[in-house]
């Protein structure tokens, strides 16, 4: 295990070295940026300047946060959008998944609509959400919710549908009421499927937020990347991408942490087991 870890890190180092080596040629660097410049940029973002972020609705808001470096307001905006969309999307997806799976008639009626909605390319909704919710965080939250909702929905739906018929039969003979079945069989089974969808969901929440920013905003990491592209600042673009990647990994780690706490009964973590 330790050796594999070492191998992982050396692979990263090798890729960075390769990047550094090929981009010593300025013609290549124009397209691919230079790692040293990129990391210096990230360093500057996190240490220089100052940022302020107004919290609350309207022009005045409730109060204004003063932050120690210029990236923080952007980071806070993007992460808030992600987390809000993740929580709302996962909650709605879970509720809808349980409902459609447990009310078979409703499920049959609504299922094609859910599938149609899911196959729609969500990005084209971004301008519509902008006109509905404005250019603030809520249009991004809405876009991200449309991505998160379906992943969670389909997993919870599947989780309920795939409940072991033997467990159901034996619970029913032991005298479980519908309510007790929901609490002791359907919910726990759906929960394990829910957790395996959350890794995808948190990534998609992040994608939704950033794409939303990219398509029109005044704040956020997506906005930073758009700015950099506008000035052919390829180093800025790569710096933005790296910051995004690191935070996506952090969010994923948080999901894993929660999963480890609540899924202790699962034989091997990270591997979805059919229940």
């Amino acid at each position: 295990m330790v050796e594999l870890r070492a191998l992982q890190w050396s692979l990263l180092a090798a890729m960075l070295a390769l990047w550094h080596w090929v981009t010593r040629n300025p013609d290549v660097a124009f397209f691919f940026g230079e790692p040293l410049v990129v990391f210096r940029r990230i360093w500057t973002w996190f240490t220089r300047g100052d940022g302020s972020l107004q919290i609350g609705p309207g022009r005045a808001g409730w109060f204004t946060l003063h932050l120690p470096a210029e990236i923080y307001p952007h980071l806070i905006v993007t992460l808030s959008e992600t987390v809000i969309a993740f929580v709302i999307g996962a909650a709605l997806g879970t509720a809808a998944g349980l409902w459609l799976a447990l009310a078979p008639r409703t499920g049959v009626v609504l299922h094609p609509y859910v599938k149609a909605a899911n196959s729609m390319p969500r990005v084209i909704l971004a301008p519509i959400f902008a006109t509905w919710f404005g250019l603030g965080i809520w249009s991004k939250v809405a876009l991200a919710i449309t991505l998160v909702f379906f992943v969670v929905f389909f997993n919870v739906y599947q989780g309920v549908k795939e409940v072991d018929p033997g467990i159901l039969a034996s619970s029913r003979v032991m005298g479980a009421s519908r309510r007790q079945l929901l609490h002791t069989v359907y919910l726990p089974s759906a929960l394990s499927w829910l957790f395996s969808s959350l890794h995808n969901a948190v990534g998609l929440a992040f994608v939704g937020a950033v794409v939303g920013e990219y398509l029109g905003s005044a704040r956020g990491i997506g906005y930073l990347i758009l700015q950099a592209e506008g000035t052919f600042d390829v180093n800025g673009v790569f710096a933005g991408i790296i910051v995004l990647t690191v935070f996506a990994l952090l969010l994923d780690g948080m999901v894993s942490f929660i999963e480890r706490r609540y899924m202790i009964w699962r034989p091997a973590l990270g591997e979805t087991r059919r229940l």
Binding site: D164, G166, I167, A169, S170, V185, L191, S192, W265, L275
Partner: peptide, 11 residues
């Protein structure tokens, strides 16, 4: 009823 399959709840 003791069923043929494994009916313990894994959770």
């Amino acid at each position: 009823y003791l069923l043929q399959s494994d009916t313990l709840m894994p959770w």
